[in-house]
Write a protein that binds this DNA or RNA. Structure first.
Lengths: 125, 125
DNA sequence: GGGCTACTTCGACATCCATCTAAGTAGCGA
DNA sequence: TCGCTACTTAGATGGATGTCGAAGTAGCCC
């Protein structure tokens, strides 16, 4: 009846900041300098919603035209926010004909989650 | 031999933004407005390191005097960053005699991690 | 009380940032 | 090629933010 927690997935690129949560040991200056821009990118209500709209969308990608309608903001402003998210690698985009599609880059969000939290994907033997 | 993932811990205060990760369904405007300031608070390399120093410290609390030495910044600047972290509820503090001690407020960091990530603490039957 | 230490608050300043309008680019269809 | 749609880039602007020095507050000890 003993509980056993076995981490089986580490969606990590091998860096210490990914493997070790904030709470386990002090973040180095280099790690903090690398992570801060990622958190800064999501530290805006519009970008949080954009990221969520993109990440949760059926099919994994969204046309910009589907995003602008969700906000009372001009198209350049939405474009600016998308650029911020793209610059830090959270999302990527491609033009296909008239439209531009955005999708979530896998792993990056998981890494941020892993830095903050003690939660681990676990399996049982 | 089937893997089974049973969430046993949900360090959540009951709000939707906590239970449901960003990737599962679109964040509401209210949720995004509430979460953004929290991410903004940790979206700075100095505050990330401060938070990590506090969170990972033996005994759970740290004297400010132990923090200032870790940075090449003036005391007012450190004090300012601590205030930012405290304002959003990530940390709390108390004066005991000459010194002021800071500690991590439980749950808040877990909640942010839960919003970003699909990772769940799991147990096995 | 006087002086010392440990912070915090205040005020200033330079920089960054979210937003807008206007203008630019890219594809499509007539 | 002309016009239309779908963005993106450029430039401007008001507001937020990180940092500092100086001053304020709080506790301790002589």
């Amino acid at each position: 009846m003993s509980k056993q927690i076995l981490p089986i997935v580490d969606p990590c690129d091998g860096e210490a900041a990914c493997r070790t949560p904030l709470v386990r040991e002090p973040l180095s200056e280099a790690e903090a300098t690398e992570l801060a821009p990622l958190f800064k990118a999501i530290a805006d209500p519009v970008r949080l919603r954009l990221l969520s709209l993109i990440a949760s969308h059926e099919g994994g990608e969204v046309c910009v035209c589907d995003l602008t309608g969700a906000f009372e903001l001009t198209a350049p402003t939405i474009s600016h926010h998308l650029k911020v998210l793209r610059r830090v690698g959270l999302i990527d985009s491609e033009r296909r004909g008239t439209w531009v599609y955005y999708w979530l880059n896998p792993g990056v969000l998981d890494r941020l989650s892993a830095v903050l939290g003690p939660r681990v994907v676990a399996a049982v033997s």
